[in-house]
Design a binder for these strands. Sequence first.
DNA 1: CTGGGGAGGGGGCCC
DNA 2: GGGGCCCCCTCCCCA
Length: 544
Amino acid sequence: MANCMVFHTQIASIMEVLANAAVAEVCKLVDDDYAVFRLEITQSQKENRTLRRKLQLLEMKVARERAERTTRERVLASRPSSVKILDRYRGMARGEGHLTGGHRSFVKPAGHNAWRDDQPITVDEGSGTSTQHVIVIESAEAVGPGVKLERSEGEEDPRHSRDNHTGAAGVPPVATEDPTITTAAQPRTRYSVTEVSGTPNAVLKSETDTETLTVTQMLLHTGSDRRSDPERLGLGRLGCPPAPGSEYLSVLHQSQRPVHSRGDGDVDALDTGVDDPSCSYTTEMDPGNISLGLETQTDLFRGDWNRRSNSVYSDGCLDKKGEVIVIDEVTVKVEGDAPLTWNADETHLGEGHSQGSTNDFLDYRESLETNLNVATHSPLHKLRDRDPVSMSIAPSDSHGHVLFDQVLNSNDRATAQAQGGGATSGNSKEKRFLCMFCKKGFSCTQKLEIHQRVHTGEKPFSCTQCHMCFAQAGNLKRHQRVHTGEKPYSCPQCEKRFSHQHQLKMHLKVHTGERPFACTHCGKRFSERSYLRIHQKKMHTAHV
DNA sequence: CTGGGGAGGGGGCCC
DNA sequence: GGGGCCCCCTCCCCA
Protein backbone atom coordinates (compact mmCIF):
# COMPACT_ATOMS: atom_id res chain seq x y z
CA MET A 1 0.00 0.00 0.00
CA ALA A 2 2.82 2.29 0.89
CA ASN A 3 4.55 1.52 -2.35
CA CYS A 4 1.39 2.21 -4.19
CA MET A 5 1.13 5.59 -2.55
CA VAL A 6 4.74 6.39 -3.36
CA PHE A 7 4.25 5.30 -6.91
CA HIS A 8 1.15 7.36 -7.18
CA THR A 9 2.99 10.37 -5.87
CA GLN A 10 5.76 9.85 -8.35
CA ILE A 11 3.26 9.57 -11.14
CA ALA A 12 1.70 12.78 -10.04
CA SER A 13 5.06 14.48 -9.98
CA ILE A 14 5.89 13.24 -13.42
CA MET A 15 2.54 14.36 -14.69
CA GLU A 16 3.10 17.76 -13.23
CA VAL A 17 6.48 18.02 -14.83
CA LEU A 18 5.10 16.94 -18.14
CA ALA A 19 2.27 19.35 -17.84
CA ASN A 20 4.62 22.18 -17.08
CA ALA A 21 6.77 21.22 -19.97
CA ALA A 22 3.76 21.14 -22.23
CA VAL A 23 2.65 24.52 -21.04
CA ALA A 24 6.10 25.89 -21.59
CA GLU A 25 6.11 24.44 -25.07
CA VAL A 26 2.80 25.96 -25.87
CA CYS A 27 3.87 29.29 -24.52
CA LYS A 28 7.00 29.15 -26.56
CA LEU A 29 5.06 28.38 -29.69
CA VAL A 30 2.66 31.18 -28.97
CA ASP A 31 5.46 33.58 -28.35
CA ASP A 32 7.21 32.56 -31.51
CA ASP A 33 4.10 32.91 -33.56
CA TYR A 34 3.36 36.15 -31.94
CA ALA A 35 6.83 37.39 -32.61
CA VAL A 36 6.37 36.53 -36.24
CA PHE A 37 3.08 38.27 -36.24
CA ARG A 38 4.58 41.33 -34.70
CA LEU A 39 7.36 41.29 -37.18
CA GLU A 40 4.88 41.20 -39.97
CA ILE A 41 3.02 44.08 -38.47
CA THR A 42 6.19 46.04 -38.13
CA GLN A 43 7.13 45.36 -41.69
CA SER A 44 3.70 46.37 -42.83
CA GLN A 45 4.02 49.55 -40.92
CA LYS A 46 7.34 50.28 -42.44
CA GLU A 47 6.00 49.63 -45.86
CA ASN A 48 3.12 51.84 -45.12
CA ARG A 49 5.39 54.61 -44.04
CA THR A 50 7.48 54.24 -47.09
CA LEU A 51 4.46 54.47 -49.32
CA ARG A 52 3.23 57.46 -47.44
CA ARG A 53 6.51 59.21 -47.84
CA LYS A 54 6.52 58.52 -51.49
CA LEU A 55 3.05 59.88 -51.73
CA GLN A 56 4.09 62.97 -49.88
CA LEU A 57 7.03 63.48 -52.14
CA LEU A 58 4.85 63.21 -55.16
CA GLU A 59 2.39 65.60 -53.73
CA MET A 60 5.14 67.96 -52.82
CA LYS A 61 6.34 67.85 -56.31
CA VAL A 62 2.95 68.68 -57.64
CA ALA A 63 2.60 71.41 -55.10
CA ARG A 64 5.84 72.98 -56.07
CA GLU A 65 4.95 72.88 -59.68
CA ARG A 66 1.71 74.52 -58.92
CA ALA A 67 3.40 77.07 -56.77
CA GLU A 68 5.85 77.90 -59.46
CA ARG A 69 3.14 78.13 -62.01
CA THR A 70 1.11 80.29 -59.74
CA THR A 71 4.08 82.48 -59.06
CA ARG A 72 4.70 82.97 -62.71
CA GLU A 73 1.10 83.78 -63.28
CA ARG A 74 1.08 86.22 -60.47
CA VAL A 75 4.20 87.88 -61.61
CA LEU A 76 2.69 88.25 -65.01
CA ALA A 77 -0.48 89.55 -63.64
CA SER A 78 1.38 91.94 -61.37
CA ARG A 79 -1.30 91.63 -58.89
CA PRO A 80 -1.11 93.48 -55.65
CA SER A 81 0.29 91.38 -52.97
CA SER A 82 -1.75 89.75 -50.38
CA VAL A 83 -1.28 87.33 -47.65
CA LYS A 84 -3.41 84.35 -47.28
CA ILE A 85 -3.28 81.91 -44.58
CA LEU A 86 -5.44 78.97 -45.05
CA ASP A 87 -5.90 76.78 -42.17
CA ARG A 88 -7.95 73.75 -42.17
CA TYR A 89 -8.72 71.70 -39.29
CA ARG A 90 -9.27 68.22 -40.26
CA GLY A 91 -11.73 65.95 -38.74
CA MET A 92 -14.55 67.31 -36.77
CA ALA A 93 -14.96 65.57 -33.55
CA ARG A 94 -18.57 65.03 -34.26
CA GLY A 95 -18.26 64.86 -37.93
CA GLU A 96 -20.68 67.64 -38.43
CA GLY A 97 -18.52 69.17 -40.98
CA HIS A 98 -18.77 72.72 -39.87
CA LEU A 99 -15.18 73.44 -40.11
CA THR A 100 -15.38 77.10 -40.45
CA GLY A 101 -13.67 77.94 -37.26
CA GLY A 102 -10.41 76.39 -37.97
CA HIS A 103 -10.36 77.32 -41.52
CA ARG A 104 -10.26 80.91 -41.21
CA SER A 105 -8.25 82.56 -43.77
CA PHE A 106 -7.00 86.00 -43.73
CA VAL A 107 -6.37 88.10 -46.67
CA LYS A 108 -4.62 91.21 -45.84
CA PRO A 109 -4.09 93.49 -48.70
CA ALA A 110 -0.83 95.13 -48.80
CA GLY A 111 -0.57 98.80 -48.88
CA HIS A 112 -3.75 99.44 -47.06
CA ASN A 113 -5.52 97.99 -44.15
CA ALA A 114 -8.63 96.94 -45.81
CA TRP A 115 -9.41 93.61 -47.28
CA ARG A 116 -9.83 93.74 -50.90
CA ASP A 117 -12.99 92.60 -52.39
CA ASP A 118 -11.24 90.87 -55.16
CA GLN A 119 -9.17 88.94 -52.74
CA PRO A 120 -11.65 87.62 -50.34
CA ILE A 121 -10.66 85.73 -47.34
CA THR A 122 -10.82 82.16 -48.18
CA VAL A 123 -12.62 80.03 -45.75
CA ASP A 124 -11.74 76.52 -46.39
CA GLU A 125 -14.86 74.59 -45.83
CA GLY A 126 -13.43 71.20 -45.76
CA SER A 127 -15.60 68.22 -45.86
CA GLY A 128 -14.30 67.21 -42.56
CA THR A 129 -12.77 64.17 -44.03
CA SER A 130 -9.96 65.82 -45.74
CA THR A 131 -6.68 65.73 -44.01
CA GLN A 132 -5.02 68.43 -45.87
CA HIS A 133 -4.01 71.63 -44.30
CA VAL A 134 -2.85 74.37 -46.42
CA ILE A 135 -1.04 77.47 -45.58
CA VAL A 136 -0.94 79.91 -48.33
CA ILE A 137 1.02 83.01 -48.04
CA GLU A 138 0.70 84.74 -51.26
CA SER A 139 2.80 87.36 -52.69
CA ALA A 140 4.22 89.36 -50.02
CA GLU A 141 6.03 91.50 -52.40
CA ALA A 142 3.49 94.21 -52.24
CA VAL A 143 3.12 93.97 -48.55
CA GLY A 144 4.43 97.03 -46.99
CA PRO A 145 7.52 96.82 -44.90
CA GLY A 146 5.45 97.44 -41.90
CA VAL A 147 3.44 94.34 -42.37
CA LYS A 148 4.74 91.42 -40.53
CA LEU A 149 3.60 87.97 -40.00
CA GLU A 150 5.43 86.60 -37.11
CA ARG A 151 5.71 83.12 -35.95
CA SER A 152 5.96 82.78 -32.29
CA GLU A 153 6.49 79.97 -29.90
CA GLY A 154 4.20 77.13 -30.22
CA GLU A 155 3.41 77.85 -33.72
CA GLU A 156 4.03 75.37 -36.32
CA ASP A 157 7.51 75.63 -37.30
CA PRO A 158 7.86 75.98 -41.00
CA ARG A 159 10.74 73.65 -40.81
CA HIS A 160 8.43 71.05 -39.54
CA SER A 161 6.33 71.56 -42.49
CA ARG A 162 9.30 71.18 -44.66
CA ASP A 163 9.98 68.00 -42.94
CA ASN A 164 6.66 66.88 -44.02
CA HIS A 165 7.45 67.79 -47.51
CA THR A 166 10.65 66.07 -47.57
CA GLY A 167 9.14 62.99 -46.30
CA ALA A 168 10.70 63.35 -42.94
CA ALA A 169 7.60 62.02 -41.41
CA GLY A 170 9.61 59.68 -39.38
CA VAL A 171 11.38 62.44 -37.63
CA PRO A 172 10.22 62.61 -34.10
CA PRO A 173 8.12 65.57 -33.34
CA VAL A 174 9.85 68.52 -31.98
CA ALA A 175 8.16 69.45 -28.84
CA THR A 176 10.57 71.87 -27.45
CA GLU A 177 10.29 75.51 -27.98
CA ASP A 178 12.33 76.79 -30.72
CA PRO A 179 13.60 80.20 -29.93
CA THR A 180 14.40 80.71 -33.50
CA ILE A 181 10.83 80.42 -34.41
CA THR A 182 10.19 83.98 -33.60
CA THR A 183 12.27 85.21 -36.36
CA ALA A 184 10.33 88.23 -37.20
CA ALA A 185 11.14 90.05 -40.32
CA GLN A 186 12.87 87.10 -41.70
CA PRO A 187 12.64 87.33 -45.40
CA ARG A 188 11.41 84.34 -47.18
CA THR A 189 11.18 83.74 -50.78
CA ARG A 190 9.03 80.75 -50.47
CA TYR A 191 7.05 79.21 -47.80
CA SER A 192 5.31 76.06 -48.45
CA VAL A 193 3.52 73.93 -46.02
CA THR A 194 1.82 70.91 -47.24
CA GLU A 195 0.47 68.03 -45.43
CA VAL A 196 -1.68 65.65 -47.23
CA SER A 197 -2.97 62.43 -46.18
CA GLY A 198 -6.18 61.73 -47.71
CA THR A 199 -6.70 63.92 -50.62
CA PRO A 200 -4.64 64.26 -53.68
CA ASN A 201 -4.96 67.97 -53.82
CA ALA A 202 -3.47 68.58 -50.49
CA VAL A 203 -0.97 71.12 -51.27
CA LEU A 204 0.15 74.13 -49.66
CA LYS A 205 1.88 76.84 -51.28
CA SER A 206 3.07 80.04 -50.17
CA GLU A 207 5.05 82.56 -51.88
CA THR A 208 6.54 85.42 -50.20
CA ASP A 209 8.94 87.47 -52.03
CA THR A 210 10.94 90.17 -50.59
CA GLU A 211 8.61 90.50 -47.80
CA THR A 212 9.39 90.34 -44.23
CA LEU A 213 6.62 88.07 -43.43
CA THR A 214 6.53 85.98 -40.47
CA VAL A 215 3.72 83.98 -39.23
CA THR A 216 3.45 83.99 -35.57
CA GLN A 217 1.33 81.91 -33.44
CA MET A 218 0.40 83.53 -30.28
CA LEU A 219 -2.07 83.24 -27.59
CA LEU A 220 -3.49 86.01 -25.67
CA HIS A 221 -3.33 85.19 -22.09
CA THR A 222 -3.84 87.19 -19.07
CA GLY A 223 -1.19 87.62 -16.55
CA SER A 224 -2.56 84.88 -14.40
CA ASP A 225 -2.07 82.39 -17.08
CA ARG A 226 -0.56 79.34 -15.60
CA ARG A 227 0.25 77.56 -18.72
CA SER A 228 3.79 77.20 -17.62
CA ASP A 229 2.73 75.15 -14.72
CA PRO A 230 3.76 71.65 -15.51
CA GLU A 231 0.84 70.20 -13.73
CA ARG A 232 -1.53 72.29 -15.65
CA LEU A 233 0.15 71.47 -18.79
CA GLY A 234 -0.17 67.91 -18.03
CA LEU A 235 -3.74 68.45 -17.19
CA GLY A 236 -4.46 70.49 -20.16
CA ARG A 237 -6.62 67.80 -21.35
CA LEU A 238 -8.74 68.42 -18.37
CA GLY A 239 -9.74 71.79 -19.38
CA CYS A 240 -6.95 73.91 -18.35
CA PRO A 241 -6.25 76.84 -20.51
CA PRO A 242 -4.82 76.02 -23.75
CA ALA A 243 -1.21 76.20 -23.48
CA PRO A 244 0.34 78.00 -26.29
CA GLY A 245 3.21 76.70 -28.00
CA SER A 246 5.41 73.83 -27.54
CA GLU A 247 4.88 73.42 -23.91
CA TYR A 248 1.54 72.12 -24.61
CA LEU A 249 2.84 70.16 -27.44
CA SER A 250 5.19 68.36 -25.25
CA VAL A 251 2.33 67.38 -23.09
CA LEU A 252 0.57 66.07 -26.04
CA HIS A 253 3.46 64.00 -26.96
CA GLN A 254 3.44 62.43 -23.65
CA SER A 255 -0.13 61.84 -23.03
CA GLN A 256 -2.10 62.08 -26.14
CA ARG A 257 -0.90 59.35 -28.27
CA PRO A 258 -3.24 56.71 -27.06
CA VAL A 259 -6.05 58.77 -28.21
CA HIS A 260 -5.11 58.32 -31.76
CA SER A 261 -6.27 54.84 -31.66
CA ARG A 262 -9.79 55.96 -31.59
CA GLY A 263 -9.45 57.42 -34.97
CA ASP A 264 -10.75 56.01 -38.11
CA GLY A 265 -7.45 55.41 -39.68
CA ASP A 266 -6.16 51.95 -40.03
CA VAL A 267 -2.70 53.15 -39.83
CA ASP A 268 -3.37 54.77 -36.61
CA ALA A 269 -4.69 51.68 -35.16
CA LEU A 270 -1.38 50.16 -35.85
CA ASP A 271 0.55 53.13 -34.90
CA THR A 272 -1.07 53.63 -31.64
CA GLY A 273 -0.04 50.30 -30.53
CA VAL A 274 -1.40 46.89 -30.78
CA ASP A 275 -2.86 45.48 -27.74
CA ASP A 276 -0.17 43.11 -27.00
CA PRO A 277 -1.27 40.22 -24.88
CA SER A 278 2.22 39.18 -24.14
CA CYS A 279 2.97 42.47 -22.52
CA SER A 280 6.47 41.99 -23.67
CA TYR A 281 6.00 43.49 -27.00
CA THR A 282 5.65 47.14 -27.63
CA THR A 283 4.16 47.91 -30.92
CA GLU A 284 6.30 50.26 -32.77
CA MET A 285 4.86 53.68 -32.88
CA ASP A 286 4.69 54.95 -36.32
CA PRO A 287 6.63 58.11 -36.21
CA GLY A 288 5.36 59.01 -39.55
CA ASN A 289 1.92 59.22 -38.24
CA ILE A 290 2.48 60.37 -34.80
CA SER A 291 5.04 62.89 -35.57
CA LEU A 292 3.03 64.36 -38.31
CA GLY A 293 0.20 65.05 -36.09
CA LEU A 294 2.21 66.15 -33.19
CA GLU A 295 4.79 68.18 -34.81
CA THR A 296 2.36 70.01 -36.89
CA GLN A 297 -0.23 70.40 -34.29
CA THR A 298 0.27 73.62 -32.63
CA ASP A 299 -2.12 74.15 -29.98
CA LEU A 300 -5.59 73.39 -30.16
CA PHE A 301 -7.03 72.47 -27.24
CA ARG A 302 -7.02 75.49 -25.74
CA GLY A 303 -9.93 75.55 -24.32
CA ASP A 304 -10.94 73.52 -22.46
CA TRP A 305 -8.75 71.80 -23.19
CA ASN A 306 -10.46 71.81 -20.63
CA ARG A 307 -12.86 69.76 -19.81
CA ARG A 308 -13.51 66.58 -18.27
CA SER A 309 -11.72 63.56 -19.10
CA ASN A 310 -8.22 63.45 -19.87
CA SER A 311 -8.48 61.57 -22.99
CA VAL A 312 -10.65 64.14 -24.41
CA TYR A 313 -8.06 66.61 -24.75
CA SER A 314 -6.00 64.54 -26.78
CA ASP A 315 -8.83 64.22 -28.99
CA GLY A 316 -9.03 67.80 -29.57
CA CYS A 317 -5.43 68.26 -29.82
CA LEU A 318 -4.61 65.68 -32.27
CA ASP A 319 -6.03 64.92 -35.48
CA LYS A 320 -7.57 61.56 -35.71
CA LYS A 321 -5.06 60.49 -38.19
CA GLY A 322 -2.34 62.49 -36.71
CA GLU A 323 -1.51 63.96 -40.02
CA VAL A 324 -2.91 67.35 -39.75
CA ILE A 325 -1.05 70.51 -39.91
CA VAL A 326 -2.91 72.71 -37.61
CA ILE A 327 -2.21 76.31 -37.44
CA ASP A 328 -4.60 77.33 -34.89
CA GLU A 329 -3.02 80.40 -33.66
CA VAL A 330 -1.74 82.94 -35.95
CA THR A 331 -0.73 86.32 -34.91
CA VAL A 332 -0.48 88.88 -37.53
CA LYS A 333 1.09 92.06 -36.63
CA VAL A 334 0.14 94.87 -38.82
CA GLU A 335 1.96 98.03 -38.55
CA GLY A 336 -0.12 100.71 -39.92
CA ASP A 337 -2.33 103.55 -39.06
CA ALA A 338 -5.45 102.53 -40.73
CA PRO A 339 -7.68 100.15 -38.92
CA LEU A 340 -7.60 96.69 -40.15
CA THR A 341 -10.73 95.76 -41.87
CA TRP A 342 -11.82 92.29 -42.58
CA ASN A 343 -13.94 91.21 -45.36
CA ALA A 344 -17.12 90.89 -43.47
CA ASP A 345 -18.63 88.58 -45.96
CA GLU A 346 -15.90 86.14 -45.57
CA THR A 347 -14.78 86.42 -42.08
CA HIS A 348 -17.38 88.31 -40.20
CA LEU A 349 -14.64 90.35 -38.89
CA GLY A 350 -15.92 93.51 -40.19
CA GLU A 351 -14.76 95.95 -37.69
CA GLY A 352 -11.47 97.53 -37.65
CA HIS A 353 -9.10 98.13 -34.92
CA SER A 354 -7.31 101.22 -34.06
CA GLN A 355 -4.98 101.72 -31.27
CA GLY A 356 -6.39 103.15 -28.18
CA SER A 357 -9.97 102.61 -29.02
CA THR A 358 -11.66 99.56 -27.76
CA ASN A 359 -14.52 100.27 -30.00
CA ASP A 360 -12.31 99.56 -32.87
CA PHE A 361 -11.50 96.09 -31.85
CA LEU A 362 -12.29 93.68 -34.51
CA ASP A 363 -15.59 92.18 -34.03
CA TYR A 364 -15.38 88.51 -34.43
CA ARG A 365 -18.62 87.71 -32.81
CA GLU A 366 -20.07 86.08 -35.79
CA SER A 367 -16.94 84.22 -36.35
CA LEU A 368 -17.32 82.78 -32.93
CA GLU A 369 -20.51 81.23 -33.93
CA THR A 370 -19.09 79.63 -36.94
CA ASN A 371 -15.70 78.82 -35.77
CA LEU A 372 -14.61 75.34 -35.37
CA ASN A 373 -14.77 74.27 -31.88
CA VAL A 374 -11.50 72.75 -31.24
CA ALA A 375 -12.55 71.90 -27.85
CA THR A 376 -15.10 69.63 -29.21
CA HIS A 377 -12.29 67.45 -30.12
CA SER A 378 -11.39 67.24 -26.60
CA PRO A 379 -13.22 64.65 -24.71
CA LEU A 380 -11.90 66.10 -21.60
CA HIS A 381 -13.19 69.42 -21.82
CA LYS A 382 -16.30 68.40 -23.50
CA LEU A 383 -16.72 71.62 -25.19
CA ARG A 384 -20.03 72.23 -26.58
CA ASP A 385 -20.48 71.91 -30.23
CA ARG A 386 -21.10 75.51 -30.45
CA ASP A 387 -18.06 76.48 -28.66
CA PRO A 388 -16.10 78.14 -31.27
CA VAL A 389 -12.51 78.22 -31.92
CA SER A 390 -12.10 81.69 -32.84
CA MET A 391 -9.61 83.84 -34.41
CA SER A 392 -9.75 86.88 -32.36
CA ILE A 393 -8.11 90.10 -32.78
CA ALA A 394 -6.97 92.01 -29.87
CA PRO A 395 -4.87 94.99 -29.25
CA SER A 396 -1.49 93.58 -28.75
CA ASP A 397 0.85 96.24 -27.83
CA SER A 398 1.53 99.85 -27.64
CA HIS A 399 2.54 99.98 -31.23
CA GLY A 400 -0.89 99.58 -32.49
CA HIS A 401 -0.31 96.09 -33.64
CA VAL A 402 -3.22 93.93 -34.16
CA LEU A 403 -3.03 90.44 -32.96
CA PHE A 404 -5.03 87.79 -34.56
CA ASP A 405 -5.30 85.24 -31.96
CA GLN A 406 -7.14 82.09 -32.13
CA VAL A 407 -8.88 81.43 -28.94
CA LEU A 408 -10.96 78.60 -27.84
CA ASN A 409 -13.76 77.92 -25.63
CA SER A 410 -15.80 80.86 -26.49
CA ASN A 411 -19.25 80.59 -25.26
CA ASP A 412 -22.10 81.21 -27.54
CA ARG A 413 -24.07 82.64 -24.75
CA ALA A 414 -21.54 85.30 -24.24
CA THR A 415 -21.45 85.77 -27.91
CA ALA A 416 -25.15 86.05 -28.11
CA GLN A 417 -25.17 88.51 -25.34
CA ALA A 418 -22.49 90.48 -26.96
CA GLN A 419 -24.38 90.41 -30.16
CA GLY A 420 -27.42 91.53 -28.38
CA GLY A 421 -25.68 94.67 -27.40
CA GLY A 422 -24.23 93.39 -24.23
CA ALA A 423 -21.41 95.78 -24.49
CA THR A 424 -23.63 98.71 -24.36
CA SER A 425 -26.93 97.37 -23.38
CA GLY A 426 -28.39 98.84 -20.62
CA ASN A 427 -27.34 98.30 -17.17
CA SER A 428 -27.52 100.60 -14.29
CA LYS A 429 -23.79 100.45 -13.95
CA GLU A 430 -21.61 101.89 -16.55
CA LYS A 431 -19.89 99.13 -18.41
CA ARG A 432 -16.85 100.83 -19.60
CA PHE A 433 -14.57 97.84 -19.63
CA LEU A 434 -15.05 96.22 -22.96
CA CYS A 435 -14.01 92.78 -23.89
CA MET A 436 -11.38 92.91 -26.54
CA PHE A 437 -12.84 89.85 -28.11
CA CYS A 438 -16.54 90.41 -28.20
CA LYS A 439 -16.86 93.99 -27.07
CA LYS A 440 -19.15 93.11 -24.29
CA GLY A 441 -18.98 95.62 -21.52
CA PHE A 442 -18.41 95.06 -17.85
CA SER A 443 -18.56 97.26 -14.86
CA CYS A 444 -15.14 96.44 -13.58
CA THR A 445 -11.92 94.91 -14.71
CA GLN A 446 -12.41 91.87 -12.55
CA LYS A 447 -15.60 90.99 -14.32
CA LEU A 448 -13.96 91.65 -17.60
CA GLU A 449 -11.04 89.44 -16.75
CA ILE A 450 -13.33 86.63 -15.78
CA HIS A 451 -15.33 87.05 -18.88
CA GLN A 452 -12.34 87.03 -21.15
CA ARG A 453 -11.47 83.63 -19.87
CA VAL A 454 -14.36 82.54 -21.98
CA HIS A 455 -12.31 83.50 -24.95
CA THR A 456 -8.86 82.67 -23.76
CA GLY A 457 -9.80 79.39 -22.21
CA GLU A 458 -7.91 80.26 -19.12
CA LYS A 459 -9.05 78.30 -16.12
CA PRO A 460 -6.95 79.30 -13.19
CA PHE A 461 -8.92 77.43 -10.57
CA SER A 462 -8.13 73.78 -10.51
CA CYS A 463 -9.64 71.13 -8.35
CA THR A 464 -7.16 69.36 -6.17
CA GLN A 465 -9.15 66.19 -6.28
CA CYS A 466 -9.83 65.63 -9.91
CA HIS A 467 -7.82 68.10 -11.96
CA MET A 468 -10.87 69.85 -13.21
CA CYS A 469 -10.22 73.45 -13.98
CA PHE A 470 -12.55 76.37 -13.75
CA ALA A 471 -12.56 79.91 -14.87
CA GLN A 472 -14.40 81.09 -11.80
CA ALA A 473 -13.57 80.39 -8.21
CA GLY A 474 -17.17 80.00 -7.36
CA ASN A 475 -17.61 77.30 -9.91
CA LEU A 476 -14.69 75.44 -8.45
CA LYS A 477 -16.17 75.75 -5.03
CA ARG A 478 -19.44 74.46 -6.27
CA HIS A 479 -17.73 71.66 -8.08
CA GLN A 480 -15.92 70.51 -4.98
CA ARG A 481 -19.24 69.57 -3.50
CA VAL A 482 -19.07 66.70 -5.90
CA HIS A 483 -16.15 65.37 -3.92
CA THR A 484 -17.30 66.36 -0.50
CA GLY A 485 -20.82 65.20 -1.04
CA GLU A 486 -22.02 68.41 0.43
CA LYS A 487 -25.59 69.21 -0.49
CA PRO A 488 -26.42 72.36 1.32
CA TYR A 489 -29.75 72.93 -0.34
CA SER A 490 -32.49 70.79 1.09
CA CYS A 491 -36.09 70.61 0.12
CA PRO A 492 -38.31 71.56 3.00
CA GLN A 493 -41.03 69.27 1.75
CA CYS A 494 -39.26 66.03 1.05
CA GLU A 495 -35.89 66.29 2.70
CA LYS A 496 -34.23 65.92 -0.59
CA ARG A 497 -30.91 67.66 -0.82
CA PHE A 498 -29.05 69.28 -3.64
CA SER A 499 -25.65 70.65 -4.31
CA HIS A 500 -26.96 73.33 -6.62
CA GLN A 501 -29.31 75.92 -5.38
CA HIS A 502 -30.87 75.99 -8.74
CA GLN A 503 -31.46 72.28 -8.48
CA LEU A 504 -33.51 72.87 -5.40
CA LYS A 505 -35.41 75.59 -7.12
CA MET A 506 -36.21 73.29 -9.96
CA HIS A 507 -37.09 70.53 -7.61
CA LEU A 508 -39.53 72.68 -5.72
CA LYS A 509 -41.53 72.93 -8.87
CA VAL A 510 -42.24 69.27 -8.46
CA HIS A 511 -44.11 70.07 -5.32
CA THR A 512 -45.69 73.26 -6.44
CA GLY A 513 -46.63 71.93 -9.84
CA GLU A 514 -45.38 75.09 -11.36
CA ARG A 515 -44.97 74.75 -15.08
CA PRO A 516 -44.25 78.15 -16.47
CA PHE A 517 -43.01 77.04 -19.85
CA ALA A 518 -45.77 76.23 -22.28
CA CYS A 519 -45.37 74.78 -25.71
CA THR A 520 -46.58 77.23 -28.29
CA HIS A 521 -47.66 74.37 -30.51
CA CYS A 522 -49.61 72.09 -28.26
CA GLY A 523 -49.93 74.02 -25.09
CA LYS A 524 -48.22 71.44 -22.97
CA ARG A 525 -46.50 72.99 -20.04
CA PHE A 526 -43.15 72.27 -18.51
CA SER A 527 -41.36 73.26 -15.40
CA GLU A 528 -38.15 74.10 -17.21
CA ARG A 529 -37.26 75.68 -20.43
CA SER A 530 -34.99 72.82 -21.32
CA TYR A 531 -37.88 70.38 -21.03
CA LEU A 532 -39.90 72.52 -23.33
CA ARG A 533 -37.05 72.68 -25.74
CA ILE A 534 -36.71 68.94 -25.74
CA HIS A 535 -40.39 68.53 -26.18
CA GLN A 536 -40.52 70.86 -29.11
CA LYS A 537 -37.58 69.27 -30.68
CA LYS A 538 -39.08 65.89 -30.31
CA MET A 539 -42.68 66.59 -31.11
CA HIS A 540 -42.68 69.69 -33.20
CA THR A 541 -39.46 69.57 -35.04
CA ALA A 542 -41.21 70.30 -38.29
CA HIS A 543 -42.71 73.39 -36.77
CA VAL A 544 -39.52 74.53 -35.27
C1' DC B 1 -35.90 64.60 -12.81
C1' DT B 2 -31.34 64.91 -11.25
C1' DG B 3 -26.51 66.16 -11.44
C1' DG B 4 -23.19 69.26 -12.79
C1' DG B 5 -20.49 72.78 -15.48
C1' DG B 6 -20.40 77.63 -17.90
C1' DA B 7 -21.09 82.17 -17.32
C1' DG B 8 -23.08 86.84 -15.90
C1' DG B 9 -24.43 89.92 -12.34
C1' DG B 10 -25.19 91.81 -7.64
C1' DG B 11 -23.43 93.10 -3.47
C1' DG B 12 -20.35 93.39 0.48
C1' DC B 13 -15.75 94.40 2.16
C1' DC B 14 -11.41 96.70 2.06
C1' DC B 15 -8.08 100.07 0.53
C1' DG C 1 -16.74 107.61 -3.40
C1' DG C 2 -14.54 104.58 -6.50
C1' DG C 3 -12.11 100.51 -7.72
C1' DG C 4 -10.51 95.90 -6.82
C1' DC C 5 -11.58 91.63 -4.95
C1' DC C 6 -14.36 88.07 -3.44
C1' DC C 7 -18.49 85.51 -2.57
C1' DC C 8 -22.75 84.19 -3.82
C1' DC C 9 -26.83 83.87 -6.57
C1' DT C 10 -28.84 83.01 -10.74
C1' DC C 11 -29.72 81.37 -15.24
C1' DC C 12 -28.50 78.48 -18.97
C1' DC C 13 -27.29 74.29 -20.92
C1' DC C 14 -26.23 69.46 -21.30
C1' DA C 15 -25.94 64.48 -20.04
